[in-house]
Every structure is written in C-alpha cells, then in structure tokens.
C-alpha cells in the first residue's frame, strides 16, 4: 500500500505547478548531456557522443557546468591538455597518439555536430556567476547562458541523458 506517499512524479512543489505541466511527457528524440568535466579526455568523449547522436538524427542539448563551462572559455581549448586525475598516467600517451593519428579536437567534433544536426549548447548561469564569466567570454559555439531549470526541462523528455 502506498496511499500515504505521494504518487509518482508528484513532489512537494506540485501545489505550485499546473498539474498538466508536470505530467510525464512523451519522449523526444533528443540526447541531453550535462558536461561537468573540463578535461580533454572527457570533452572528447562528450563531443563524440554528441556527434553520433546528431548523425542519427537526434537533437542534442548540452549543459555546461563547472569545469565543463570553463573549458569553453575563448581559446582555452587550444591549450587544454588536462586529463582526468584517475587517468593522469595516460596523459602523455593520449596526447602522443592523438597527434600521431590526427584525431580531430573535441571542439571540431562539436562544430561538425552542429553542422549536421540540431545541437544546442547552454552554459550554466551559476557557473558563469561563480567565475565572473559572460557569454562573450566563451567560444561562439555556446548558444546562451541558462538556468538549471531550463536544462532540466529539456532533459525531462529526452530519450537519454548523460552526465560527463
């Protein structure tokens, strides 16, 4: 019996919201990514996922928070050689192999994804405030600065959401 518990999807804020707006929506053909990391290994992964999704006809919604947002500061990607601390011992071999095999940069991947698909990139307003950043301080590939609710609203009906 669960009569004493709120029904699924009906949290404490429901009394403030129009019930129709909090119904579980139909699934949209969209990949949502929370891009929290600013190390190039993870940026590369996220960019490849985004490209694959765009190629398969999915919309892509990327939300840049914390180090993910800092990685999009103008020109930062040109010198970003950071690798996740867990894999720091692979850093030199990764850099070597990427150079030897002419692997496209994560920024180029995202540009390619935008070229073929509907890819929207938003930077987290909290992070922007925290680091005194404005949209102008970020690479032009970033579309806008939004709050977390705007992203959650886009993620809510997305077919997939990744946290990278």
């Amino acid at each position: 019996m669960y009569g004493e518990f709120p029904l699924e999807g009906q949290g404490q804020v429901d009394s403030l919201l129009d019930p129709a707006g909090s119904m579980k929506p139909a699934t949209a053909n969209r990949l949502a990514i929370v891009l929290f990391s600013g190390t190039m290994d993870k940026l590369l992964s996220a960019s490849i996922m985004a490209t694959g999704a765009a190629a398969m006809g999915m919309d892509v919604e990327i939300f840049l928070t914390n180090w993910g947002a800092l990685a999009f500061r103008k020109d930062d990607y040109k010198t970003n050689k950071r690798v996740s601390a867990d894999f720091a011992d692979y850093q030199s071999v990764l850099m070597e192999q990427m150079a030897a095999k002419h692997v496209t940069s994560w920024m180029e991947n995202l540009e390619g994804a935008k070229e073929i698909g509907n890819v929207h990139i938003a930077a987290c307003s909290h992070t922007m405030t925290l680091f005194d950043l404005r949209l102008d301080d970020l690479e032009p590939i970033v579309d806008e600065v939004t709050g977390v609710a705007a992203f959650v609203e886009r993620a809510r009906d997305s077919a997939m959401t990744l946290y990278i």
Partner: peptide, 17 residues
C-alpha cells in the same frame, strides 16, 4: 582513411548533403 569515429560517417553525411 585515417579519420577516426565518427569522422568517416561525418564525411559521408557532408558528401550526401
């Protein structure tokens, strides 16, 4: 040749476009 996933697919998509 030498382009990495998903590079060749991207090249195909660009070509077909």
């Amino acid at each position: 040749r030498g382009s990495h996933c998903p590079g060749p697919l991207m090249e195909l998509i660009r070509g077909l476009k």
